[in-house]
Amino acid sequence: MSFREKTHWAAFLALAFAFGWYFLAYPWAMVSTDAGVAAVAGMLVPVTIIIVAVMAATATFFAIRAPKEANLKEDERERSIHIRGTHLAYYPLVLGAWINMIAIFYRFSPGVYLNLLMATVVIAELVRVGSQLYYYRRGY
């Protein structure tokens, strides 16, 4: 497994666990209140710290174990995998944007839009990293 594939696994798991916790622990009963908006900001702090810490620790650990591989530039296969993953993530991103635009007509609270936007970005990111992992494993 290459250095980049390992860091992709770390990113995927960190995203899934951190935002999984966020969406399960978020106080949905108060989503329409000002406290609901504040909760989004407050909960994003530990989520961001968890993701950044896991990514940094994983990258450092694997870079120390295989420094030569960590310093290698992306080759054409890896670039191609990244392009495909980003392309696939475009679809959930656009779908989420449309859902958000339609939701505006229903006059939800800012907390709902914030969470909807965040879910859109998280799903798109999971699709991007997940599909890249799939292509790393399966080839194409």
């Binding site: 497994m1 290459s2 594939e5 591989e69 290698l72 080759d75 054409e76 296969r77 890896e78 790393y136 399966r138 080839g139 194409y140």
Partner: peptide, 22 residues
């Protein structure tokens, strides 16, 4: 060649079609 070991492995196994340059 200027690619990773994993890319060579993928080419050998017929999982990846390399560019003309590679």
């Amino acid at each position: 060649v200027g690619v990773t070991r994993q890319t060579i492995a993928a080419i050998e196994q017929g999982k990846y079609s390399p560019s003309l340059e590679v």
